[in-house]
Design a binder for these strands. Structure first.
Length: 424
RNA sequence: GGAGAGAUGGCCGAGUAGGCUGAAGGCGCUCGCCUGCUAAGCGAGUGUAGGGCGAAAGUUCUACCCAGGGUUCGAAUCCCUGUCUCUCCGCCA
């Protein structure tokens, strides 16, 4: 959320930034409701001031034994007026707030203007593409042949787009989770967190999934709970409504969670394999940083995610999302895309963002500098480190052999009982 | 699932026969003093948000004692609903 004062004073800039994002959010009514709210508020405050004064007067009259009935009667009416004005106020405030909650973050000045992913800026390309002397197969073909996953049976258990791993496949997924968590905790200094896998409405509002993107979520019927779409939500909300001590910043957490997404609007896209599932595993990196450091922290966080790919010897590229492709809450985002040989394309495997104080304002996450009395909003950042299912897919495709077996990346072997390859 | 107790400022913790209590006290924090360092000690200050006036220091008004309703001229204090925490019983991985 942007600060209401900022929107009021920089209305054109805000509107412009929505245009740059190629979004159609209409904020014209902001001005109307804003001035209405302010006018009503002023009136109420005056009336309340009067009421407070006369209440004191009534108190002292009663003490002295003076008759105050007429004054009481008058104040009774006035209280009624205040009550009516107040419901008027609430109504307008709600409308104003709804608009405010749907305004996306302002892109950082370094973010390239563009309409969609085709305008994203390539930052770097790392690693050597594998050189096959045969036609590389898709991971789902290889995986099903090796009997390490079975999408048919998964759909029987639940429905389309759910994973079901067996044997070395299940182990590979688990090994990667441990591999990633170990590197982030022991080498990059993150604290491991295991959060709830369901979150409430307030938490999703803090991080920006709600109110706008309810359709993307799985909701628990009869509860105010939702399945986590990403660990970003529970982990960022650890410090919801807190005032952090400056000396603890940056706070760095890493968490494994499964992620649940309805994938509304993506029917027909990536229908096969592990790329787009309703449930997938992900390791998340989350930081709470001081404003002046947050862009350095973003670079570091992105590199932390890249480290995993480097250790696995998977080729990838990093792109900076253009304004049109940027997520709602983000001011700047780097996507890390891993090479998928069968399709011959780079696919997103991590998304690392700086939200500046956009989420912090919604979640009321602040810090206090030593010697200062004012609190400030922290900057929040997060990124995948990495999406596990897609990493499995990438390993299978990049490490496939002519005979259909899969070589296990060397650094991962200690986590796989030291086996060197998955074969029939 | 049944029965109780509680929710107050950065933290701990007073305050319920309704009216200068934005809220005692303590801790913490900030500034100053003192002790050749440190610790201790002494003094002063120290909530948040919004609005008015002021160049600023400041000043003034409004709101906030879990949340939302209600009673009342007036509620941290009374009533209702909800949420969360704790204790006991039951059940259970």
């Amino acid at each position: 959320m942007l600060e209401i004062k900022f929107v009021r004073q920089n209305f054109d800039l805000v509107q412009n930034s929505i245009l740059k994002r190629c979004k159609s959010t209409n904020i014209e009514n902001f001005k109307i409701y804003d001035s209405k709210v302010r006018a009503i508020l002023q009136e109420i405050e005056e009336l309340r001031h009067r009421r407070n004064m006369f209440s004191d007067k009534i108190a002292s009259m009663k003490k002295k034994g003076i008759d105050s009935d007429s004054l009481v009667l008058e104040m009774r009416n006035e209280s009624e007026t205040i009550k009516n004005l107040n419901s008027d106020l609430l109504e307008n405030e709600e409308k104003l707030n709804n608009i405010l909650m749907e305004i996306p973050n302002i892109p950082h000045s370094s973010v390239q203007e563009g309409k969609d992913s085709s305008d994203n800026l390539l930052i770097r390309t790392i690693g050597k593409l594998p050189d096959f002397d045969f036609e590389p197969k898709h991971h789902w073909e290889l995986g099903e042949k090796l009997k390490i996953f079975d999408f048919e049976r998964a759909s029987k258990i639940t429905g389309a787009r759910f994973p079901l791993y067996f044997g070395a496949g299940a182990k590979l997924e688990r090994a990667l989770i441990n591999f990633m968590l170990d590197i982030h905790t022991t080498e990059h200094g993150y604290t491991e967190v295991l959060p709830p896998f369901m979150v409430n409405r307030q938490s999703l509002t803090s991080t920006g999934q709600l109110p706008k993107f309810e359709d993307d979520l799985f909701k628990i019927e009869g509860w105010d709970y939702y399945m986590v779409p990403t660990a970003e939500v529970p982990v960022t909300n650890i410090h919801q409504n807190e005032i952090l001590d400056e000396s603890t910043l940056p706070i760095m957490y890493t968490a494994y969670t499964p992620c649940f997404r309805s994938e509304a609007g993506s029917y027909g896209k990536d229908t096969k394999g592990l790329i787009r599932q309703h449930q997938f595993n992900k390791i998340e990196l989350v930081k709470f940083a001081k404003p002046e450091n947050s862009y350095d922290e973003l670079e570091r966080l992105t590199q932390n995610a890249e480290t995993i790919l480097k250790r696995l010897n998977l080729p990838y590229q990093v792109v900076s999302l253009c304004t049109g492709d940027l997520g709602f809450s983000s001011a700047k985002t780097y996507d890390i895309e891993v090479w998928m040989p069968a399709q011959g394309v780079y696919r997103e495997i991590s998304s690392c963002s700086n939200f500046e104080n956009f989420q912090a304002r919604r979640g009321n996450i602040r810090f206090k500098r030593k010697g200062e009395k004012k609190t400030e909003l922290v900057h929040t950042l997060n990124g995948s480190g990495l999406a596990v299912g897609r990493t499995v897919a990438a390993i299978i495709e990049n490490y496939q052999q002519k005979d259909g077996s899969i070589i296990i990346p060397e650094n991962l072997r200690p986590f796989m009982g030291n086996i060197e390859r998955i074969s029939l």
